[in-house]
């Protein structure tokens, strides 16, 4: 039956692999383009800050890493929810595909923030609301990864990891609003719906870099998902062969 391409096709593992193979080179090329432009402008062309001096350039990595570790978590939790409700085969794999990538971005955010905090605040780390909730996000990612691998039965692992991923969503608004609910050492958001308090010469490279990191994040997740699908098919084939032999 001839049918127009729809988003539902992507949910079919076979179709997904075909589409991913075609889209990936473009995704990666676009990610490289945006990252080179954004980071190039940010690290070499953008002006230093009037207070922070050159260390403001850490922002071009720190802020995109922070945004994407939050957005990635939301995406992972959404996939986990779909996996629990609709039992879709790709949903649980998507959770496993996102978790290590999100954890890496969260770690990059923590480490780059620490490197910025030392010259700016005078300390590598404080236990304020923003830094602590961000550390919790990183640990939640690690928990999801650990649970997904903690059972011999893949489905039980996916269920446990999925539930942790879903429960952990409460941490997202805590991170976002920590700087407003509590007095924190970390500054409040510079970019809001009402406008930005970052000078355009710095905001532009930041947004380009963030777009690049977003494309990179998506590319890695798609690549991981492809590998996980292939791995699952191989396992199923082996099990079938073992069943026939036995």
């Amino acid at each position: 039956m001839p049918q127009a391409f729809g988003w539902h096709d992507l949910a079919n593992p076979h179709r997904f692999r075909a589409v991913a193979a075609r889209v990936l080179p473009w995704l990666l090329a676009a990610a490289a383009g945006f990252l080179l432009t954004g980071l190039g402008l940010g690290l070499f062309v953008a002006p230093p800050d009037y207070l922070q001096g050159e260390s403001v350039r850490i922002m071009y990595v720190h802020v995109p890493a922070a945004w994407l570790s939050l957005a990635g978590y939301a995406g992972m939790a959404g996939a986990a929810l779909a996996g629990r409700i609709w039992r879709h085969p790709l949903a649980d794999l998507t959770v496993r595909a996102i978790a290590p990538v999100g954890a890496t971005f969260a770690l990059v955010c923590l480490v780059s923030g620490s490197l910025w905090g030392r010259p700016t605040w005078g300390t590598w780390w404080v236990w304020d609301g923003r830094l602590t909730s961000m550390l919790v996000l990183f640990l939640l990612y690690l928990g999801v990864i650990a649970l997904a691998h903690a059972f011999d039965d893949r489905l039980r692992g996916a269920r446990a990891a999925g539930i942790l991923a879903i429960v952990g969503v409460v941490n997202l608004p805590v991170i976002k609003y920590s700087v407003e609910w509590w007095n924190t050492l970390h500054q409040p958001a510079s970019i809001r719906l009402s406008g930005s308090s970052i000078h355009p010469d710095m905001l532009e490279p930041l947004l380009l870099s963030a777009t690049g990191f977003l494309l990179l994040f998506v590319s890695i997740v798609v690549m991981r998902l492809r590998a996980l699908i292939a791995e699952q098919r191989r396992e199923m084939r082996q099990r079938r062969r073992a069943a026939l032999a036995g």
Binding site: P48, D49, Y50, M59, W121, G122, L185, S190, S197, I198
Partner: peptide
Amino acid sequence: LLAKHDENYMPPEVA
């Protein structure tokens, strides 16, 4: 003593 940074980022000339 720790310094707190606010949410404003700008080049020295603008400041």
